[in-house]
Amino acid sequence: MITYADACRVLNESRGDAVAVTTMTQTKYWNQVSQEPDLDIGIANGMSKASSVALGIALGDSERSVFCLDADGSLLMNFGALATIAGMAPKNLYHFVFNNGIYSVTGGQPLPSPNVEYAKAAEACGYAAAFKFDDIESLDSALPEILSSAGPILIEIIIKGEPQAEGVDQTWESNAQMPLQLRALRKRLTGNDDWGPGGPFI
């Protein structure tokens, strides 16, 4: 079983200049290791939709790798995205699914089924490849070859659950942060600072 901190550390070491779309507990740990905040988006105000946002970025900038640090509960809420991603087949999309079998941010309640095989589901939907890791050494050693292969690739990571006793730390502050992150990312990807204010936060 792998910890969030270790998983995010090794993914960050292999990141290069990839965009990182994160959600839920992954965002907290990713923010502790990322050296490229202008290439990060923490999806806090878009329930379960990190993989769909990542798909859009991957299609829109096909020259740059896109990491999606998804959660098992989030993916279950947006399961059709596996078929959508497979159908569009973005070669630059690497879909990491952190599988801990629980809803961490709401206190650790179990998912409807603890036995979903996300890597097998991705393969069945038509991803180019899918892998599953439950120890950090294997993940670390396999990443270079995975990331040099054409996507979309799903990498299921068996994670040690960390249920949050006092709820999630991603409400107002994170919701307000997301529009700013998205504007910073658009500026970084396009070179244009042309997305003005809008919405309730800016």
Binding site: S52, L55, I57, G60
Partner: peptide, 8 residues
Amino acid sequence: AGLFVAGQ
């Protein structure tokens, strides 16, 4: 939203 962020 992702497409727009990427300049599309």
